[in-house]
Structure formats: C-alpha cells, structure tokens
C-alpha cells in the first residue's frame, strides 16, 4: 500500500481551494497529519482523495490512479470519516456499525460478521455504548461510533476528518493510539485532518501544513514546523520546542493582527 499526490487541485461548488499539490509517496503503515488554519483546505483535500469532492490531478494508490479504479474496489480500500454523525437518529450504535458493513457489501449476508463488530467496539473501548441510541450519545461518543463504522470495514487507507475535535483528552489519545496500532500492525495508511497540532506532532510520521491554497511545509514532524511556517499558516507568533520526552511541541505566544492573517 502506498499513496502519492501529483499536481492535485481540490475545491467545492466549482471553487478551487487547493491547487498544484504534490505529496511524495507515503509508504505503508504511515500516518500523515494535515494541519492548517480554518478554510486552508484540509477537509476539501480529504473529500477529494475519498472521491466525494471535486479533485483534479493524479491521486495514486498502490501505483494506480484512483480515477481508473472501479468504485467497488475504491470503497473496499478507503475508509472516510466525515466531521460529524447526525444527532437525531434512533439507530442503536451497534446497528449503525453493522449498517456500515452491510450497506457497503449488500450481497454478502455475513459481511458484517458479529465478531468483527464486537472487536471494533472492544478495540475502541465502546462496549458500554453499543446498545444505546445515537440520539442519546454526546457529540464525542457519536464521533467514536463514526470511527467504529470506518474501522470495522478494515480499510487500507483511512481518511479521518477531525476525528478528535469533540473528544476529551483520554479519548483523543485512544483514537490516535488505535490508528497508530492499525498503521503499524496492518500496514494501513492514515491521513488525518487535525487542529490539535501537538497531537499531530506526536503521532504522525509526516506533517503537511496547508495554507495559501497549497502546501506551506511538508516533512517529518521534527523538521516540518518552525516559527516562520506557523506565522504564515496561522498568523501567530509561536515557538517549536522539544518536551522532556523528546516530542516536538508548539507553544503559541500571541496572535498577529488580522492584517497578517484572515481565518
């Protein structure tokens, strides 16, 4: 499994958000974090790769342009987690996860095997929520069920859009540790759009900073960020330092005036 982007443009409603974007080959078992300010195009790029949004250029999965792959093969390989599950549904969490498998492979009555569903609830520590209706769950819990819907299908490429945005610290770590395990154990590639830059620095293998309609910086977490990149990406004065355990961390000092940056 490998992923690369060549001269990719992505947008929505006919309006380009990103253009001329390249991403050197991402090897199997890697986590790529997409970071950047609001509106930088993180979600737009994920939707483009997932085949759900407008995208031009070459998105190459395992040496094949995904536009040339049959849709059913793409669905089997890619798992996409949108930003939110709706809150008004009377579905039970267990059947929401079951529907993810059965809807994707309706011809196979055993596709949503009970063991696979049970395993994903256990892996994510969601056993206590399994028999509760989605409308009774908090935003963070629904986000976890959404992630279970993606993971149960065992995709080779995971595209997660803000998977930790509604979660407390414990669940943020649970999600990213699970993704890390999936990448290490099964060789899956995971591309995550994420706002928490320190979580991104800690868990990703490659950091891609988006801004100004393209890539501002890209590379290993230790080298992809510096004060200048943070200033251009977010309009802030910030420092990148090493914590006592050796991870790079960003310490934001103050926001620059809006003349330098617009959200």
């Amino acid at each position: 499994m490998s992923l690369s982007l060549e001269n990719v443009s992505a947008g929505y409603a006919g309006r380009p958000v990103l253009s001329g974007l390249d991403l050197a080959e991402v090897p199997s078992g890697s986590i790529v974090a997409l970071v950047g300010a609001n509106g930088a195009g993180k979600s737009t790029l994920l939707r483009g790769i997932a085949g759900l949004g407008e995208a031009k250029g070459r998105i190459v999965l395992d040496g094949q342009d995904i536009s040339e792959l049959p849709p059913e093969m793409l669905v089997g390989r890619i798992g996409y987690l949108p930003q939110a599950l709706p809150q008004g549904s009377s579905l039970i969490a267990y059947e929401a996860v079951m529907s993810a498998v059965r809807a994707a492979r309706p011809d196979s009555p055993r596709a949503g095997g009970a063991a696979a569903i049970e395993q994903v609830f256990d892996t994510l520590g969601l056993r206590d929520l399994a028999m509760r209706r989605l409308r009774e769950l908090s935003g963070g819990q629904r986000q976890m069920v959404g992630l279970a819907q993606v993971l149960v299908r065992k995709p080779r490429l995971l595209l997660l859009d803000e998977p930790t945005s509604a979660l407390d610290l414990r669940w943020q770590l649970t999600v990213l540790e699970t993704v890390r395990r999936m990448a290490d154990a099964e060789g899956a590639i995971c591309v995550i759009a994420i706002h928490d830059i320190n979580l991104a620095l800690r868990f990703c293998d490659r950091l891609v900073v988006l801004g100004g309609g393209g890539v501002l910086s890209s590379g290993p977490p230790a080298t992809a960020l510096d004060a200048d990149v943070l200033r251009r990406a977010y309009g802030i004065e910030a420092r990148v330092e090493a914590c006592s355990r050796g991870f790079a961390i960003v310490l934001a000092d103050h926001a620059l005036s809006l003349d330098h940056h617009s959200p």
Partner: peptide
C-alpha cells in the same frame, strides 16, 4: 434497507460506504 439504514448516519457517511 441497509443502504437506507446507513443513510441515517448522513449523506457523507453513506457515500463513503459506496452508496
């Protein structure tokens, strides 16, 4: 029935399952 059950999770979720 399965496609419609999955649709209760929202259009984007359903599309990502190949519906």
């Amino acid at each position: 029935v399965w496609a419609m059950t999955a649709l209760r999770g929202g259009d984007d979720h359903a599309r990502s399952f190949g519906i």
